[in-house]
């Protein structure tokens, strides 16, 4: 329990303390108490607010795509076909490779690789370096995050689907429910617990995304893809504004906690017993 106290509890309270001082991180310079000034500065920092909006947009889009895809994959691989196990195994694979490595893989494909293909095919409207275009670099982040998480969420949806008892589905069939009807009126409501978990995991993972950001775009071009985590990191370890950066980190904690709390409450209210 000592490691836990030292690595989580103490830094958490220390962190709140740091957020009230102005300090450049050097042991020699004094920490000046500035009260809530850091927090005021956080909310007038345009770069931070921009990255907050960007992260929110990225999260909403990615969560929607990941969960739709994952659910579709799960429904497909729980149907009685021969290739279902092979399919599951391959679709899940990317999750096991760490975010940093995944980012580098796609860094090649969407960046350098794309420009090579453009050269070889003489077609630069379809193929160009995504990572040097502000808008497409953000799309690239969505693609990679989707590729990483969809298989993981699929596994959770599969577990949920397999827990639905065959009797219920059979009863629905006898009552004349077609495939779609079956999905919307029976499977989805009974899947609500899995949906709660998957939304929670994707929401918090997208909000906290950092590794993929570092290796795929590095925040560029011109900070156009800098997410909140990277903004906090840069404020503290690159610009050496320890107090301001920590104030951002504390704000970030409350944001993540609030958002996930409301999401879990909203979706678990929709859970039904059968």
């Amino acid at each position: 329990m000592i490691p836990f106290l030292l690595t989580v509890v103490v830094p958490f309270f220390q962190g709140i303390g740091y957020s009230f001082v102005s300090w450049n991180g050097m042991a020699k310079t004094a920490k000046v108490f500035v009260g809530f000034q850091n927090y005021m500065a956080v909310f007038s920092d345009k770069r931070f607010l921009d990255s907050l909006v960007r992260t929110t947009l990225f999260t909403v889009v990615t969560v929607a795509i990941v969960n739709t895809l994952a659910l579709a994959f799960a429904l497909w691989t729980t149907s009685r076909i021969k290739a279902r196990n092979a399919g599951r195994a391959m679709l899940f694979m990317p999750y096991l490779i760490g975010g940093l490595i995944l980012g580098y893989v796609w860094n090649y494909i969407l960046g350098y690789g794309m420009s090579l293909v453009a050269n070889a095919t003489n077609n630069s409207t379809l193929f160009f370096n995504w990572l040097s275009n502000k808008q497409y670099a953000l799309y690239a982040m969505i693609v990679v995050a989707t590729w990483q998480m969809a298989g993981y969420m699929m596994i959770i949806y599969i577990a949920g689907l397999e827990a639905i008892s065959g009797d219920v589905l059979e009863a629905a069939q006898i009552d004349g429910a077609s495939g779609w009807r079956n999905l919307i009126s029976i499977k989805l409501p009974l899947l609500m617990p899995s949906i709660t978990i998957c939304l929670f995991l994707t929401l918090s993972n997208c909000f906290k995304i950092y590794d993929v950001n570092v290796s795929l775009t590095g925040g560029g071009p011109a900070n156009a893809t800098e997410m909140i985590s990277m903004n906090i990191y840069n404020e503290i370890f690159v610009k050496s504004n320890f107090g301001l950066g920590q104030a951002k980190a504390v704000v970030f904690f409350f944001l993540v906690a609030l958002i996930t709390f409301f999401q879990v409450r909203m979706t678990s209210n929709k859970e039904v017993e059968c």
């Binding site: 830094p11 958490f12 220390q14 906290k208």
Partner: peptide, 11 residues
């Protein structure tokens, strides 16, 4: 629930 980014500097 605490994100690592909130703890990294004080840690």
């Amino acid at each position: 629930l605490i994100p690592f980014q909130t703890l990294m500097m004080p840690l």
